[in-house]
Design a protein around this nucleic acid. Structure first.
Length: 107
DNA sequence: GCGGTGACCAGCG
DNA sequence: GCGCTGGCCACCG
């Protein structure tokens, strides 16, 4: 029961991302105990797009909206982040480290 | 049932 | 200092 798959864990963590905060694939992967599996985290986000998971709050380790291309429009991901008070410039989050939320650190 | 792929990250040359 | 390769697990064809 508690032993969910990697995907399910990613969904749970992504859902726990607080408002106005962002995290990285590596942070989630590391929290799950597999920092080297960050690739799969991104793939999980791809499936999370059809779920209630705020995938727009998840970016790479440098704060770049790598997955924006997977959203409906082109700047949808950026609009969502700015709507939460997170400044985004050139598909990159400004002061990313300031808004960075580490699940392994706060959970 | 098997092989390839995927929104990445970190180490090594 | 920069560039490339390896690694991890689940889903798609």
């Amino acid at each position: 029961m508690e032993e969910k798959n990697f995907f399910d864990k990613v969904y749970e963590v992504a859902k726990q991302i607080p408002y106005g905060r962002v995290t990285s694939y590596g942070a989630i992967a590391k929290y799950l105990g597999a920092a080297r599996s960050a690739r799969m985290v991104g793939w999980a986000m791809n499936n999370s797009l059809t779920k209630d998971v705020p995938a727009h709050r998840v970016v790479n380790r440098v704060g770049v909206l790598t997955g924006k291309h997977h959203f409906d429009g082109s700047n949808i991901m950026q609009q969502l982040l700015e709507n939460e008070g997170i400044p985004v410039k050139e598909n990159q989050i400004v002061d990313f480290q300031k808004y960075f939320w580490d699940p392994a650190l706060e959970l």
